[in-house]
Design a protein around this nucleic acid. Structure first.
Lengths: 343, 343
DNA sequence: TGTTAGCACTCGACCTGAAAGAGTGCTAAC
DNA sequence: GTTAGCACTCTTTCAGGTCGAGTGCTAACA
């Protein structure tokens, strides 16, 4: 059965109306609301075809039709128009970002919140682990005798702070020396690439401060080994799910939101093969039973052309794909531009 | 009407049973389950008295009784036994805290998560604003030409990081000088107490680096002026509310959780006159209509004897007060001890 | 050959009434 | 002062019935 233009229009009508009303769409509604110039009976025939093709389905015999996962897929791939709110949205977002000077992480957090508010979806930002980014700066600061703060900046302006216990005899100058030495040897290297001989080199040149270096390195390796910690994840708008009629059952919401709090679930959900551009996963396409009623839209988040993380939008399969994709596009672009400017 | 020992026992039974089952408690249940040695008829009479006293109430004529806010209050004030899980709990918590070396904020976040998991309540940690804590250390680090990182440590080991744009000509030594100068003048001062003449002093001695100092000070003042930012709030276990039968209605949960995301609500909720020890607010006692079905337990969180924030537990009025109070006690004590050790 | 009107049919949503069950308050007896 | 007993109230549950939305099919029409 081929997909002629009228079938496309009817499918689109079903998708759009269902997105809007969350109610199964009947043939009468379509013939009246979307004037295709044919009667409800004709639409009924076409709808029977669409159902046979697996693009729409009936919750029960005497109900209208709702799009299937495949139906949404067809809509997203062939029918969906990119909405043009992008430009205004970008300006809005850009303004909000530049308005206040903030701690780095907060900008991202706030952006995600905004995105969640606008789309009424749940948003996820996932920054890749440290292993993939290079050390920009490492500095030890003497806070008080016996106590130092280690500041680590990695590519992409990610900052880690960690307190360090040190011998009370250590002076500010000692720490400065250690910092310099470690910077010289490790700067620009991907954290996973540190060679043993480089570390040996550091040790040999800093026998006096060996204890501190030892401690600092141990701490670094502990940071690296904490697999669970190495991805920064910001989740926002989880409550938005509660507004969706498909989640009027508390248990459903609970299961869903609890799933979303698990890192493995999020990680799989946010997997995106598509290096540039946007990935849309609809319902069962996510491969996760817990979120089979949800769709996920994922975009890569880049700084200076290199992917440093992912931004995702999670909503019910009955979500407004056109707006969601546009907004996500606008958001990532704006963020990337903002960080470029800063350089 | 006086409160004899039998009435107390019956009230306690009503509270305990209702906490356990979330169902109105009948006279028969009490006479069978809590052997008070009297028949259900007698208990009925006593319950009528308790109802007259306003300590328990009936949802409808043919239902059992549930505790009123006043009933819970009486229970908490006079009947509740401190549960003795405290010691094991403290060890459990203490172990978890010391197990992994972490970024400072993460310890608090994780602790709150643990507390939420154990009590099945929502937890809040609210750190007071910077104005009340003194500057411990300020340091400017050269990240790359034209870009510096400002690290600020305040009392209570709170760390703020902020990137700074600087003239490309600025050297590492310039920044070091500025840092030293600012430290000399501002260290140990409450941030709100900075005097104009001190700032002038800094400016006069650093004319060459004036631009940077200017920028740094501007940034500092911007941090201070961001009123909305000056309290760090960690909220966790919001989802736990979803497990509570009193929140099986989605809209109720949504309203509640949305309220809890508002800072003003949280601030009022966490108000605690009681300087040392624990404050319990039951239902309407919170003074907030949005959370009239909830109770809040608040404890002050201290570092070195000084209150730096508050820790709170939020659950339905039908919460297990005994366990909650004990756990909260254990948590704050453990945290305080942990931070003391570190010094 | 494609389109449309008409009609019987299906099935969920909603209402109603009856029955069951839980728990009470009151009274009278112990 | 305590208890057994009983009538009463109110919620919960379920079956039956009606209503309406929407369908699929058929026959007529262009």
């Amino acid at each position: 059965m081929e997909m002629d233009s009228r079938k496309q229009k009817i499918l689109e009508a079903v998708v759009l109306d269902y997105i809007e009303t969350a109610e199964p769409v009947g043939s009468r509604t379509i013939s009246k609301k979307y004037n295709l110039g044919v009667s409800s009976a004709t639409i009924r025939n076409e709808m029977a075809d669409l159902e046979e093709m697996g693009l729409i389905e009936q919750p029960h015999t005497s109900a209208g039709r709702i799009p299937s996962d495949a139906g949404y897929r067809y809509y997203v791939d062939y029918l969906m128009a990119q909405s043009d709110i992008q430009e205004e949205a970008k300006q809005l977002i850009s303004k909000a970002i530049h308005e206040k000077q903030q701690q780095v992480g907060d900008v991202l957090r706030d952006s995600m919140k905004m995105l969640a508010d606008i789309t009424n979806c749940t948003t996820v930002m996932m920054l890749d682990n440290n292993k993939s980014s290079a050390l920009q700066l490492l500095q030890l600061l003497l806070v008080e005798p016996g106590k130092a703060l280690m500041v680590i900046i990695t590519d992409g302006d990610k900052i880690e702070n960690r307190f360090l216990e040190i011998p009370k005899t250590m002076t500010k100058e000692d720490l400065e020396l250690v910092s310099m030495m470690m910077n010289q040897n490790l700067r620009g290297l991907k954290v996973g690439d540190w060679q043993h001989n480089i570390l040996e080199n550091i040790f040999q040149n800093l026998t006096r401060q060996r204890q501190v270096v030892d401690c600092a390195l141990e701490m670094l390796s502990s940071i690296l080994n904490l697999e669970g910690r190495d991805k920064k994840i910001y989740l926002d708008g989880g409550l938005n799910m509660l507004s969706q009629p498909e989640f009027k059952d508390v248990n459903k919401v609970k299961n869903l939101l609890q799933s979303l709090e698990q890192q493995e679930v999020l990680t799989q959900l946010m997997e995106a093969d598509n290096e540039s551009g946007i990935t849309v996963k609809i319902g069962a396409e996510t491969g996760l039973d817990e979120v089979k009623d949800c769709s996920v839209i994922v975009a890569n988040y880049k700084v200076n052309g290199e992917t440093v993380g992912k931004v995702g939008l999670i909503g019910p399969t009955r979500m407004d794909y056109a707006t969601a994709v546009s907004m996500l596009n606008a958001m990532t672009q704006t963020l990337e531009e903002a960080y470029k400017e800063e350089k």
